[in-house]
Design a protein around this nucleic acid. Structure first.
Lengths: 190, 190
DNA sequence: GCTTCTTCTTGATATAGATCAAGAAATCAT
DNA sequence: ATGATTTCTTGATCTATATCAAGAAGAAGC
């Protein structure tokens, strides 16, 4: 659990020992196999997962095609944040791309955190802002960068991912076809 | 002020009369002329504006070109949310595209809202989630839609904007050149 | 290890959208 | 109103990226 607490400190800015113990006690360690769905599009969002290891893909169907919105990895949360917080149906399916280890919290437990942790909503708010900032950056990358620039920028910050998951999903997440991705990669490799 | 309170209810889900009075008392009515900067990129974010009328463009310089990230209108907030909440330098410049009326709150007053409004952080959190969802939708539109589809989708929901501000900014915000925008528009008009 | 299935690459071709350039239309200032 | 400035349109051309198709490489199952 030490790892979870460390991450909660990093993510939510919470340092009080009691609060950390309280929060982490509500998360359950879970192993899942490659291919397992943590969430199906359109369903209720009942759980939030914190990634210890492995990769999970967020995607939605659009005109019969799967569009990958995000690939979560260690230290991130697997959840359709919108659905989880507001109760709306999940906009994404979430599927493990590799065997994965997660800490999972149930929605009903999550909703009690404010009773357990002083200033919980304040921390949560800061977490949301961070998520918002990430999204804002991604939009800007689509307004101002070419596919090749997006590739390089993403590669610089996520090198390990390129060896671990099918590249077609990274391509989709960056808004380009698998073939374009492959050609940019070839150039890059030499 | 009634209008502001109505919007605060819609945006933040706050309905208690005392809370609404308290919040709206911290906002100051302000008129600004077309061209005025509410925020300059790189500066501190000291104010948050609530739009009563007019249009304000968020943009950043990228390789010497201005990229429009968003155009705010009535009922929205003009602020670099990230900078305003976290204290980081503003990522955007914000400039009035038309004469505008705003309610403006100072950061120092905003930071006292939690003492004034019970459950303020909780409301604020929900506000952040809504902003996050909007961004997530926009990203998905770039991953799954053509320029023409983005045009039509945006037009459907923002018809009035097309008569009020230079179209080149809408084009930039949708991630296409002004010429492409013009051609799509021509097709659409007949 | 061989087979099967999935993923990746590569070439050929098509196309959406960018860029450049010039003129038309609209808006603004005096 | 008139001229100046900004914005929009249009055509010509170019280029980034998509699509299609087929084979190569890699991973997984037996």
């Amino acid at each position: 659990m030490a790892e979870l607490e460390k991450y909660i400190t990093n993510y939510f800015g919470i340092t009080e020992q009691n609060a950390l113990k309280g929060i982490s006690s509500l998360f359950k360690y879970t192993k899942i196999n490659k291919g397992t769905f943590l969430q199906k599009q359109g369903n209720h969002c009942n759980t939030m997962g914190f990634v210890l290891s492995g990769y999970q893909r967020f995607f939605a169907l659009m005109d019969g095609k799967e569009v990958t919105q995000w690939i979560a990895h260690q230290g991130e949360f697997t959840v359709d944040l919108t659905g989880f917080i507001t109760g709306s149906p999940s906009r994404w399916s979430i599927q493990a791309l590799t065997d994965s280890e997660l800490y999972i919290i149930q929605k009903s437990d999550y909703d009690r955190l404010d009773q357990l942790v002083p200033r919980w909503f304040e921390f949560e708010k800061l977490f949301m802002v961070r998520c918002f900032t990430t999204m804002e950056d991604r939009i800007f990358s689509h307004l101002s960068m070419t596919a090749e620039e997006r590739y390089h920028f993403f590669f610089k910050h996520n090198k390990e991912l390129f060896n671990r998951v099918p590249l077609q999903y990274i391509a989709s997440m960056l808004g380009m076809s698998a073939e374009t991705f492959s050609r940019i990669r070839k150039k890059q490799l030499g």
